[in-house]
Design a protein around this nucleic acid. Structure first.
Lengths: 211, 211
DNA sequence: CAGTAGTCTTACTCGCGAGTAGGTACCAGG
DNA sequence: CCTGGTACCTACTCGCGAGTAAGACTACTG
């Protein structure tokens, strides 16, 4: 894009945002290793030393990206769900918020899930951390809804499975973008709440009419 | 490990297997990019040119690893499930076979899932292919079991979610190896067959007493 | 119109790792 | 005991990309 000439002078905070945006873009397209600092700086419309001056090393930059996007996503979800409602409704709102976020932030999602989960580096920490928060959230939801999951371990593993199902379905969705977010969310809701057993018998889950 | 001296002369086929084993090991520990051909050759107890002579470039090697491990796994699963049983029993056998395989082939699983899924390179093809086969399998299982999933797209997305749940739960399991495979498999079975809704009410799924 | 603090650049160094050139040891069969 | 073929090696080339040195341009502040 930007090819020649000196970049216009901008305050540090603004530049940092530009750089982060560029980094998320490039990382999501190329992955951590294939992405080069040269390309990021070019996309950001800036020279490499600036990048290093502001955001540190490549690893730091990547970790920062993950942290930022993870936070954005967790906030989007937290905003969508009200904690004093019925468990199924909470789950439903959470799922909708999640798929809504992914749908409107594909790049963020790629960085978060497809890229970060693999590299065993220092970023895995950030990612594992966020994922852990998500899992705990769901696990709490489960535990709170009475009897079923006896042990803590059981609740956690079920939550992990659910989160994984969500992630995987989101990935699938990237390849089938024609489906609207609500439909995909509803499908997962049915799967995890009703189960195949009920679905096979034609029993489906419906959101309470209001909302 | 092996430090000096010329390696004993071995027939090509044997060496190739050794190299593949070493490659799977190293790739699973380090990931595609961080793994170096030098290290693989060292672990294999062989020199680099041999590696290139037998298995081609790094990308080819990796793709070959994925293909081999994917085949092993699909076979393990196919062996475990008998196609003329009730859907829930089929699913149950499939899950057990899957978790059994992962439990006994952690390295393979890492290469398959954690590594390959990320890098957008030529390997993604192999992986996507295998995943596609798994998804189709489950989707067929779903469709066959009557009414519920009306459209092909719906069955496929549910299958994707289920496969993802399995993958994710397998990953979780890697960090909680104290749980036996059967327990983890049963948990997922309950989740996807009964659903949280039933679980919360204390309804659980039991395998038919025989097997 | 200095001085100085912060923005921004060109033009390097330098190590690491993919891939190779050009052999050497070893085992057939003639 | 040569002659080839196949397993195997040491010792390189070479490009790419992370990270940096050294300075130049701009804009306030007094």
């Amino acid at each position: 894009m930007r090819t020649e000439g000196r970049a216009k002078r901008l305050p540090r905070a603004v530049r940092e945002r530009q750089i982060m945006d560029a980094a998320v873009d490039v990382f999501s397209r190329l992955g951590f290793y294939s992405a080069s600092m040269d390309e990021i700086s070019e996309v950001a419309g800036i020279s490499k030393p600036m990048l290093y001056a502001y955001l540190g090393s490549k690893e730091e930059l990547f970790a920062t990206c993950i942290r930022r996007e993870a936070t954005r996503m967790m906030e989007a979800i937290a905003t969508g769900v009200e904690p004093d409602q019925e468990p199924d409704v909470q789950l439903w709102s959470g799922l909708r918020a999640f798929f809504g976020f992914v749908g409107e932030n594909r790049a963020s999602w790629m960085v978060l899930h497809r890229q970060a989960s693999t590299q065993g580096g220092p970023f895995a920490i950030e990612l594992t951390d966020m994922r852990g928060r998500a899992v705990s959230l769901v696990a709490a939801l489960l535990t709170q809804s009475t009897k079923a999951p006896a042990t803590k371990l059981e609740a956690e593993s079920l939550a992990a499975a659910l989160v994984g199902a969500g992630e995987s379905l989101a990935d699938w969705w990237l390849d089938h973008p024609e489906e609207p977010a609500g439909v995909v969310a509803a499908r997962l809701m049915n799967l995890v709440w009703m189960g195949f057993g009920d679905l096979v018998d034609g029993n489906v889950w419906h959101p309470p009419s209001r909302r």
